[in-house]
Nucleic acid binder design. Sequence first.
DNA 1: CAGTATCCAAAGGGATACTG
DNA 2: CAGTATCCCTTTGGATACTG
Lengths: 118, 118
Amino acid sequence: MAATCEQDPARVAERMLALKDAIELLSGKWKFCILLNLYNLGPMRFKDLQETSLGITPKVLSKELQELEDNLLITRTVNATKPVTVSYALTPHAVETQPVIEALVEFGLKHRRKIKQL
Amino acid sequence: MAATCEQDPARVAERMLALKDAIELLSGKWKFCILLNLYNLGPMRFKDLQETSLGITPKVLSKELQELEDNLLITRTVNATKPVTVSYALTPHAVETQPVIEALVEFGLKHRRKIKQL
DNA sequence: CAGTATCCAAAGGGATACTG
DNA sequence: CAGTATCCCTTTGGATACTG
Protein backbone atom coordinates (compact mmCIF):
# COMPACT_ATOMS: atom_id res chain seq x y z
CA MET A 1 0.00 0.00 0.00
CA ALA A 2 1.32 3.40 -0.85
CA ALA A 3 1.61 5.66 2.15
CA THR A 4 1.11 9.36 1.92
CA CYS A 5 4.37 9.90 3.78
CA GLU A 6 3.15 13.12 5.30
CA GLN A 7 6.24 15.04 6.27
CA ASP A 8 5.12 17.86 8.55
CA PRO A 9 5.78 16.48 12.05
CA ALA A 10 3.55 19.02 13.81
CA ARG A 11 0.62 18.09 11.62
CA VAL A 12 1.28 14.38 12.12
CA ALA A 13 1.31 14.85 15.88
CA GLU A 14 -1.82 17.01 15.91
CA ARG A 15 -3.70 14.41 13.90
CA MET A 16 -2.49 11.66 16.20
CA LEU A 17 -3.83 13.54 19.21
CA ALA A 18 -7.14 14.13 17.46
CA LEU A 19 -7.34 10.43 16.71
CA LYS A 20 -6.72 9.61 20.34
CA ASP A 21 -9.48 12.01 21.38
CA ALA A 22 -11.89 10.34 19.01
CA ILE A 23 -10.97 6.88 20.23
CA GLU A 24 -11.46 7.90 23.84
CA LEU A 25 -14.92 9.23 23.09
CA LEU A 26 -16.19 6.44 20.89
CA SER A 27 -14.38 3.29 21.89
CA GLY A 28 -16.00 0.27 23.46
CA LYS A 29 -18.30 -2.37 22.18
CA TRP A 30 -21.46 -0.36 21.98
CA LYS A 31 -21.28 3.34 21.22
CA PHE A 32 -21.05 2.93 17.48
CA CYS A 33 -23.94 0.48 17.51
CA ILE A 34 -26.14 2.94 19.35
CA LEU A 35 -25.23 5.73 16.96
CA LEU A 36 -25.85 3.51 13.94
CA ASN A 37 -29.26 2.61 15.26
CA LEU A 38 -30.20 6.22 15.79
CA TYR A 39 -28.86 7.07 12.40
CA ASN A 40 -30.74 4.26 10.67
CA LEU A 41 -33.96 4.33 12.55
CA GLY A 42 -34.29 7.86 13.88
CA PRO A 43 -35.07 8.75 17.51
CA MET A 44 -35.61 5.65 19.60
CA ARG A 45 -36.64 4.61 23.04
CA PHE A 46 -34.54 2.79 25.58
CA LYS A 47 -36.09 -0.58 25.00
CA ASP A 48 -35.91 -0.39 21.25
CA LEU A 49 -32.24 0.55 21.43
CA GLN A 50 -31.66 -2.42 23.67
CA GLU A 51 -33.25 -4.79 21.19
CA THR A 52 -31.61 -3.47 18.05
CA SER A 53 -28.17 -3.29 19.64
CA LEU A 54 -28.12 -7.08 19.88
CA GLY A 55 -26.96 -8.21 23.28
CA ILE A 56 -26.50 -5.13 25.41
CA THR A 57 -27.83 -5.22 28.96
CA PRO A 58 -29.81 -2.35 30.50
CA LYS A 59 -27.02 -1.38 32.85
CA VAL A 60 -24.47 -1.06 30.12
CA LEU A 61 -26.87 0.68 27.74
CA SER A 62 -27.70 3.19 30.43
CA LYS A 63 -24.03 3.96 30.99
CA GLU A 64 -23.24 4.29 27.30
CA LEU A 65 -26.18 6.61 26.73
CA GLN A 66 -25.08 8.87 29.57
CA GLU A 67 -21.57 9.09 28.17
CA LEU A 68 -22.86 9.90 24.70
CA GLU A 69 -25.08 12.57 26.18
CA ASP A 70 -22.21 14.01 28.22
CA ASN A 71 -20.22 14.28 25.02
CA LEU A 72 -23.05 16.09 23.26
CA LEU A 73 -23.69 13.36 20.72
CA ILE A 74 -27.23 12.45 21.75
CA THR A 75 -30.14 14.06 23.55
CA ARG A 76 -32.45 12.45 26.07
CA THR A 77 -36.09 13.51 26.06
CA VAL A 78 -38.77 12.46 28.49
CA ASN A 79 -42.19 12.19 26.85
CA ALA A 80 -45.31 13.01 28.84
CA THR A 81 -47.00 9.74 27.98
CA LYS A 82 -48.57 7.15 30.24
CA PRO A 83 -46.44 5.43 31.23
CA VAL A 84 -43.59 7.84 30.71
CA THR A 85 -41.35 7.07 27.74
CA VAL A 86 -37.91 8.39 26.95
CA SER A 87 -36.50 8.98 23.52
CA TYR A 88 -32.94 9.36 22.44
CA ALA A 89 -31.89 11.28 19.36
CA LEU A 90 -28.72 12.37 17.63
CA THR A 91 -27.50 15.93 18.07
CA PRO A 92 -26.31 17.98 15.10
CA HIS A 93 -22.78 17.40 16.34
CA ALA A 94 -23.26 13.64 15.93
CA VAL A 95 -23.38 14.13 12.16
CA GLU A 96 -19.60 14.13 12.36
CA THR A 97 -19.62 10.51 13.46
CA GLN A 98 -21.57 9.35 10.45
CA PRO A 99 -18.61 9.03 8.06
CA VAL A 100 -16.81 7.02 10.72
CA ILE A 101 -19.68 4.62 11.13
CA GLU A 102 -20.25 4.33 7.42
CA ALA A 103 -16.58 3.53 6.88
CA LEU A 104 -16.62 0.96 9.68
CA VAL A 105 -19.67 -0.76 8.21
CA GLU A 106 -18.04 -0.83 4.78
CA PHE A 107 -14.86 -2.24 6.26
CA GLY A 108 -16.82 -4.89 8.12
CA LEU A 109 -18.70 -5.95 5.00
CA LYS A 110 -15.53 -6.15 2.92
CA HIS A 111 -13.65 -8.01 5.60
CA ARG A 112 -16.38 -10.62 5.81
CA ARG A 113 -16.12 -11.22 2.07
CA LYS A 114 -12.35 -11.37 2.34
CA ILE A 115 -12.49 -13.99 5.06
CA LYS A 116 -14.96 -16.09 3.11
CA GLN A 117 -12.53 -16.31 0.21
CA LEU A 118 -9.83 -17.99 2.30
CA MET B 1 -30.27 15.53 12.91
CA ALA B 2 -32.21 13.92 10.12
CA ALA B 3 -31.95 10.18 10.13
CA THR B 4 -32.06 8.15 6.97
CA CYS B 5 -34.75 5.94 8.47
CA GLU B 6 -33.61 2.95 6.51
CA GLN B 7 -36.56 0.62 6.39
CA ASP B 8 -35.24 -2.75 5.23
CA PRO B 9 -34.77 -4.70 8.47
CA ALA B 10 -32.50 -7.33 6.91
CA ARG B 11 -30.17 -4.68 5.61
CA VAL B 12 -30.16 -2.87 8.94
CA ALA B 13 -29.27 -6.08 10.73
CA GLU B 14 -26.57 -7.02 8.24
CA ARG B 15 -24.95 -3.63 8.60
CA MET B 16 -25.12 -3.89 12.36
CA LEU B 17 -23.29 -7.20 12.26
CA ALA B 18 -20.68 -5.78 9.91
CA LEU B 19 -20.19 -2.88 12.31
CA LYS B 20 -19.71 -5.29 15.19
CA ASP B 21 -17.12 -7.20 13.17
CA ALA B 22 -15.22 -4.02 12.47
CA ILE B 23 -15.32 -2.97 16.11
CA GLU B 24 -14.03 -6.33 17.23
CA LEU B 25 -11.08 -6.10 14.85
CA LEU B 26 -10.12 -2.51 15.44
CA SER B 27 -11.16 -1.59 18.94
CA GLY B 28 -8.79 -0.74 21.72
CA LYS B 29 -6.58 2.20 22.47
CA TRP B 30 -3.85 1.55 19.94
CA LYS B 31 -4.73 -0.16 16.67
CA PHE B 32 -5.91 2.96 14.90
CA CYS B 33 -2.82 4.83 16.07
CA ILE B 34 -0.54 2.18 14.61
CA LEU B 35 -2.41 2.20 11.33
CA LEU B 36 -2.36 5.99 11.16
CA ASN B 37 1.39 5.97 11.69
CA LEU B 38 1.96 3.46 8.95
CA TYR B 39 -0.35 5.38 6.69
CA ASN B 40 1.36 8.72 7.39
CA LEU B 41 4.96 7.64 7.57
CA GLY B 42 5.15 4.48 5.49
CA PRO B 43 6.71 1.21 6.67
CA MET B 44 8.18 1.56 10.13
CA ARG B 45 10.25 -0.33 12.63
CA PHE B 46 9.16 -1.45 16.06
CA LYS B 47 10.93 1.27 17.94
CA ASP B 48 9.72 4.06 15.69
CA LEU B 49 6.16 2.84 16.03
CA GLN B 50 6.57 2.86 19.77
CA GLU B 51 7.74 6.46 19.77
CA THR B 52 5.17 7.87 17.38
CA SER B 53 2.29 6.07 19.06
CA LEU B 54 2.81 8.21 22.16
CA GLY B 55 2.76 6.11 25.29
CA ILE B 56 2.48 2.50 24.22
CA THR B 57 4.71 -0.03 25.98
CA PRO B 58 6.63 -2.72 24.11
CA LYS B 59 4.49 -5.51 25.43
CA VAL B 60 1.28 -3.92 24.31
CA LEU B 61 2.69 -2.84 20.97
CA SER B 62 3.85 -6.36 20.33
CA LYS B 63 0.41 -7.77 21.03
CA GLU B 64 -1.37 -5.21 18.88
CA LEU B 65 0.99 -5.81 15.97
CA GLN B 66 0.38 -9.53 16.13
CA GLU B 67 -3.37 -9.05 16.11
CA LEU B 68 -3.17 -6.69 13.15
CA GLU B 69 -0.99 -9.19 11.32
CA ASP B 70 -3.38 -12.05 12.14
CA ASN B 71 -6.17 -9.99 10.62
CA LEU B 72 -4.18 -9.35 7.45
CA LEU B 73 -3.90 -5.62 7.96
CA ILE B 74 -0.13 -5.39 8.31
CA THR B 75 2.92 -7.40 7.32
CA ARG B 76 6.02 -8.06 9.40
CA THR B 77 9.34 -8.22 7.58
CA VAL B 78 12.69 -9.12 9.07
CA ASN B 79 15.53 -7.22 7.42
CA ALA B 80 18.94 -8.84 7.07
CA THR B 81 20.75 -5.94 8.67
CA LYS B 82 23.23 -5.90 11.53
CA PRO B 83 21.68 -5.89 14.01
CA VAL B 84 18.51 -7.35 12.60
CA THR B 85 15.67 -4.87 12.15
CA VAL B 86 12.00 -5.52 11.58
CA SER B 87 9.67 -3.40 9.55
CA TYR B 88 5.91 -3.29 9.58
CA ALA B 89 3.85 -2.20 6.61
CA LEU B 90 0.21 -1.93 5.63
CA THR B 91 -1.31 -4.62 3.44
CA PRO B 92 -3.51 -3.76 0.47
CA HIS B 93 -6.47 -4.83 2.56
CA ALA B 94 -5.62 -2.13 5.11
CA VAL B 95 -6.59 0.51 2.57
CA GLU B 96 -10.14 -0.14 3.67
CA THR B 97 -9.35 1.22 7.11
CA GLN B 98 -8.12 4.52 5.80
CA PRO B 99 -11.55 6.19 5.45
CA VAL B 100 -12.30 5.12 9.01
CA ILE B 101 -9.13 6.67 10.34
CA GLU B 102 -9.54 9.81 8.30
CA ALA B 103 -13.08 10.22 9.59
CA LEU B 104 -11.97 9.63 13.17
CA VAL B 105 -9.22 12.25 12.87
CA GLU B 106 -11.67 14.74 11.41
CA PHE B 107 -14.12 14.03 14.19
CA GLY B 108 -11.39 14.47 16.79
CA LEU B 109 -10.30 17.80 15.32
CA LYS B 110 -13.86 19.11 15.15
CA HIS B 111 -14.70 17.93 18.61
CA ARG B 112 -11.69 19.75 20.05
CA ARG B 113 -12.86 22.98 18.46
CA LYS B 114 -16.39 22.38 19.74
CA ILE B 115 -15.15 21.88 23.30
CA LYS B 116 -13.02 25.01 23.18
CA GLN B 117 -16.12 27.07 22.33
CA LEU B 118 -17.90 26.13 25.54
C1' DC C 1 16.98 -3.33 18.19
C1' DA C 2 13.03 -6.08 18.91
C1' DG C 3 10.97 -7.96 21.57
C1' DT C 4 9.39 -11.36 26.15
C1' DA C 5 8.30 -12.22 31.18
C1' DT C 6 6.03 -11.11 35.30
C1' DC C 7 3.09 -8.75 38.01
C1' DC C 8 -0.78 -6.06 38.85
C1' DA C 9 -4.53 -2.32 38.80
C1' DA C 10 -8.41 -0.65 36.55
C1' DA C 11 -11.91 -0.66 33.31
C1' DG C 12 -15.23 -3.03 30.68
C1' DG C 13 -18.89 -5.51 30.57
C1' DG C 14 -22.26 -9.62 31.56
C1' DA C 15 -26.06 -11.97 34.79
C1' DT C 16 -29.55 -11.34 37.62
C1' DA C 17 -32.74 -9.15 40.38
C1' DC C 18 -35.18 -5.24 41.66
C1' DT C 19 -37.75 -0.32 41.55
C1' DG C 20 -40.74 3.89 40.48
C1' DC D 1 -41.18 1.30 30.37
C1' DA D 2 -36.84 2.92 31.81
C1' DG D 3 -33.94 2.27 34.24
C1' DT D 4 -30.77 1.06 39.04
C1' DA D 5 -28.29 -2.20 42.27
C1' DT D 6 -25.20 -5.90 43.17
C1' DC D 7 -22.09 -9.12 42.15
C1' DC D 8 -18.40 -10.89 39.68
C1' DC D 9 -15.44 -12.28 35.87
C1' DT D 10 -12.59 -11.13 31.99
C1' DT D 11 -9.94 -8.18 29.28
C1' DT D 12 -7.05 -4.37 28.75
C1' DG D 13 -3.21 -2.39 29.36
C1' DG D 14 0.54 -0.10 32.31
C1' DA D 15 5.26 -0.68 35.05
C1' DT D 16 9.30 -2.77 35.25
C1' DA D 17 12.85 -5.81 34.29
C1' DC D 18 15.05 -8.83 31.35
C1' DT D 19 16.91 -11.45 26.77
C1' DG D 20 19.02 -12.78 22.11
